[in-house]
């Protein structure tokens, strides 16, 4: 009797594919109705809070940055505390080109930002991703710190600690200018870039490549044993993730019209990590939920009661680490499984 090689009749195959487990896999990438919600909310926000569009733009950029981290950390399991390296690389790519009057067209600038960040991601990933755990954590931190020092040292080009102010950014499509007083263009531009990037990430995550990344996250040794070129695949993922972080950084530079060393800070890298974990990693929408909750709290709480904010955030992180291993969406999914079972299958 043959196990793996049994030729299957069409009827038998149809029966197998009708199995709930198979159906789940076949349908997993289908769009759900609630996936329209974040975008509807973003458009609603545009009309409802015209005074808060600067905050909204920052939020959209943070979502994109967290999304890029989710690809590396949530899906491939690359634990990094240095993702701001790529955010900063993208920001400085845009900033340097614009400040020195070389290139100011926004969309192509973003493409260049992605390219620069991807190049750094590829080069560092190629050597770093051999390591795991604390060593990898340290190497990502050091790479980021190295870039920050380099940006600081190249004072003549980067403005050093003071950064590059008043970046001249050309209008989008030659029509829609960035107005520093009204953030309408910035907001819609960032939203469009986020949407395109999100669709890209979503496709990637549900692709066979994305499944194999999940495999690497779940069991590295086994992935080697099924013949996957693990390091190469991690490097590809890290490079794509870096490119997206670069786009987020480029957006940040364009919409704020400045770049400074804070783009490459450990602060920024740790914050985006916290945001992603707060929302829930490895589930696409965690970046959205985390960024909204974190930035909203920070915006309204941190300015008034900075110490209470820090204390509360600390307590929250400790609680999440101890009890809710996958953030707000993780808690939601757990509650759904516990109380919404049955309906979930419908």
């Amino acid at each position: 009797m043959s196990v793996a090689l049994a030729p299957a009749g069409a009827a038998a195959a149809a029966a197998r594919l009708a199995h709930p487990a198979a159906r789940t896999l076949i349908r997993r990438h289908h769009l759900r109705w609630w996936e329209a919600l974040p975008w509807a909310a973003a458009i609603g926000f545009y009309f409802a809070f015209p005074a808060y569009l600067a905050f909204g733009t920052e939020l959209l950029i943070t979502v994109l940055f967290a999304l890029s981290l989710d690809l590396a950390l949530g899906y491939a399991g690359i634990i990094t505390l240095g993702h701001a390296a790529f955010f900063g690389a993208g920001a400085y790519a845009v900033g340097l080109l614009a400040f020195h009057g070389i290139w100011t067209e926004p969309i192509t600038s973003l493409a260049l930002a992605a390219l620069v960040a991807a190049a750094i991601g590829f080069a560092s990933g190629l050597v770093l991703l051999r390591t795991r755990g604390l060593t990898l954590l340290m190497l990502t931190i050091c790479t980021m710190a190295l870039l920050q020092e380099a940006a600081n040292m190249a004072h003549d080009y980067t403005g050093g600690f003071d950064g590059l102010p008043n970046l001249p950014i050309a209008p989008v499509f030659g029509v829609f200018a960035f107005n520093p007083l009204y953030d309408n263009t910035q907001y819609l531009y960032a939203l469009a870039v986020l949407l395109v990037s999100f669709l890209f990430v979503r496709t990637l995550v549900y692709s066979p490549f994305g499944q194999s990344l999940t495999g690497i996250r779940e069991n590295l040794l086994r992935m080697h044993a099924v013949g996957a070129p693990v390091r190469w695949r991690l490097t590809v993922c890290y490079t794509i993730s870096a490119a997206l972080a670069g786009v987020a950084g480029g957006l940040w530079a364009q919409t704020n019209a400045y770049v400074n060393l804070s783009a490459l800070d450990l602060d920024r890298a740790a914050t985006v990590l916290i945001i992603l974990i707060l929302g829930g990693y490895g589930r696409l929408y965690g970046a959205f939920v985390g960024a909204v909750v974190y930035l909203a709290l920070e915006h309204f709480l941190a300015r008034v009661y900075p110490t209470a904010w820090q204390l509360g955030l600390g307590l929250l992180l400790v609680l999440i680490a101890l009890f809710a291993h996958n953030g707000i969406l993780g808690i939601g999914a757990m509650l759904w499984r516990r109380y919404g079972r049955g309906r979930a299958e419908a």
Binding site: I79, L137, A308, L311, L313, G314, L317, V318, A321, H325
Partner: peptide, 30 residues
């Protein structure tokens, strides 16, 4: 607290200890 996370992944450990740092900082300021 720490004991509960010995078997957890690095990510939870990183998150937990960053949270602890914030609590220490805020407590010191207060």
């Amino acid at each position: 607290l720490y004991r509960r996370l010995y078997r957890a992944g690095e990510l939870d450990q990183v998150l937990f200890t960053i949270g602890l740092i914030f609590i220490f900082i805020a407590a010191t300021v207060i």
